[in-house]
Amino acid sequence: MVAQSADLAQPLLKNLQLVVPMTEVPCVHQWMVLANITHIGDPPGFCQLVDFPLDLITWTLTWPKFWNLLLGFALDLREEKQLEVTLEALISQVADLKNSLVSFIYKLENEYDRLTWPSVLDSFALLSGQLNTLNKVLKHEKTPLLRNQVIIPLVLSPDRDEEIMRQTEGRVPVFSHEVVPDHLRTKPDPEVEEQEKQLITDAARISPDVAQKQIQSLNKMCSNLLEKISKEERESESGGLRQNKQTFNPTDTNALVAAVAFGKGLSNRRPPGSGGPVQSGQPGTGPIIAGASGMQQVQISGAPTPQQPMLAGVQMSQASQPGKMPSGIKTNIKSASMHPYQR
């Protein structure tokens, strides 16, 4: 029947070979068996992996026994399949992690002169995310208990092993007694284990009251420390601010706003009645000059012309001095007319 004991509590070997009496299994039941294996949730065709030399008769087997066997076999296969899937996921996660680490190390080694803090943080965030994913895979409910899997070194050799060299990317050249304890280690050093045990027994000896007190004092210390750190932080921040405080000057703000709003401080430089220099003419300054000098001319000529009735009227009503005026007075009018707007 089987190469192993029929006891279902015992795990079955992978290369278990089923040898079933053909006569005992009617055609209909054969199909039932196969259908049940595939029904468990494995991909179609999975049952083909199982080698059923159904025509060989080496053992006699009653139908219920055979059924139980097959079911246990299928369950075992499913577990194995899950282990495989999990291992694949773990390997791909670890590969991702490794790639990120490699690129981060590369960055640190080759771009340290132009590396910015945000980009370092990005790298850290990536690594932490990948570690989280790895943990999730490990804690997934479908992940079989990996601690139940045992790895035994079958062959130790002091010779160079090209295959291992390739798989470890040149990190482990030999699979010898020297490296195996480190690479296949699943527990801490015996010394560390001893210390841990010591600590646990120490902890168990303390009475709850004492423990409570110790917790309280530790919490107090921590909060004190935190407060000190945050205080220091705040001070250095405000110190930094004080240092950089002169980024703007409210007086300047006001001066600039007043300048754009109503030209405060802009026209002061212009000497009163400075029509002269403008009229003397600057060639090549274009229409602005023409406009400006035109305006000055209006001011100075003073006499109301039919072309500028509005402005002349304004000037007259404000000055209430119709008729002839010496040009000096007119200058005053000009500044007087500017004044109310400027103030």
């Binding site: 000057n249 754009v260 802009l266 430089r269 300054t285 400006a292």
Partner: peptide, 22 residues
Amino acid sequence: KIFRILMPGNTESIEPLSLSYL
């Protein structure tokens, strides 16, 4: 930055109004 125009109409001769930018 706002620049005063020293000579009316001549935008070549200018001087800054203040040591700040608006």
